[in-house]
Amino acid sequence: MLLALIRRFGQMIFVMFGISVLVFLIFFVTPGADPAARIAGRNASPETLEAVRKSFGFDQPVWVQYYTLMKKLFVTQDLTSFVNRGWKVVPAVIDTIPVTLSLVIGAAVLWVIFGLLVGLIAAATRGSWIDKSLMALGLIGCAMPVYWLGEVMNLITQSRYHDSWMFSWVPPLGYKPLTEDPKGWFLTLVIPWITLSILYIGLYGRVLRANLIEAMQEDYIRTARAKGLSETRIMLRHALRTSLISFVTLFGLDFGALVGGAALLTEVVFGLQGVGKLTYDALQNLDLPVIMTTVIYASFFVVLANALVDVVYILLDPRVRSA
């Protein structure tokens, strides 16, 4: 089993290396365009261009260029933006990570708990009005665009009903670091968490219900019934345990993507300076070093999340361990 883990992480490192090479090739070695001009941004002066060329070693062989870039990204961390003069890119990205992580982890906790509840309750009461209304709500949750929901939330909690007893506790938009102001951190994030998680609660609840109902048709559930187990025990111990596998797969993919910047719309709506927001701004300014860094960061996160999912698989499903 340990060997399987080591192999899996070795594979992960290999994929990450592949991604870094690919990103490097796309940004630096695309034929027909001068990478220096793109890095320097629009209307750059000849001096800036020259500085970019020197700094990235464009006069040197390709592998040296790759090495220089990786060194700037991971070792010296002095990759600079030329659009925003002198702005150090790597620390800027690192600064945004806690914001995105806070948002996504909090939302993930909500959607896992409520997703499980919705799925279990709906599957246990299959065909009843409880099941039907939960599924209808889930579908609505899936269907609401997150930016629209966010704006509605803001409208309610920040302006319309802000002065009522219900929402007077909601602080103004923005982010408060957890280490400096834990209470403020929590309060500012409650509404974004709910907004972001609603989509996923609907999705996960529906997927889990379908998986549970499928699992309940399996032969081993009949065996469990023949053993004289209670329906609750059959559902939680036998059906849920085997259904969790696809739940975890989905979670890994979504979590990785969100941390990698897919929470962009939520971040923009709630004025959170996260990875998504940073990428969005960089795209608008065509700030190549920032884009490059966030792309690498995001893809690393997706790869890491997938590797973690596989580890959880190994824990959940003994068949993966030996097969």
């Binding site: 089993m1 399987a4 192999r7 594979q11 361990r321 030996s322 097969a323």
Partner: peptide
């Protein structure tokens, strides 16, 4: 059969 990345 199998996958070169698993234990076996």
């Amino acid at each position: 059969i199998g996958n070169r990345f698993t234990a076996q």
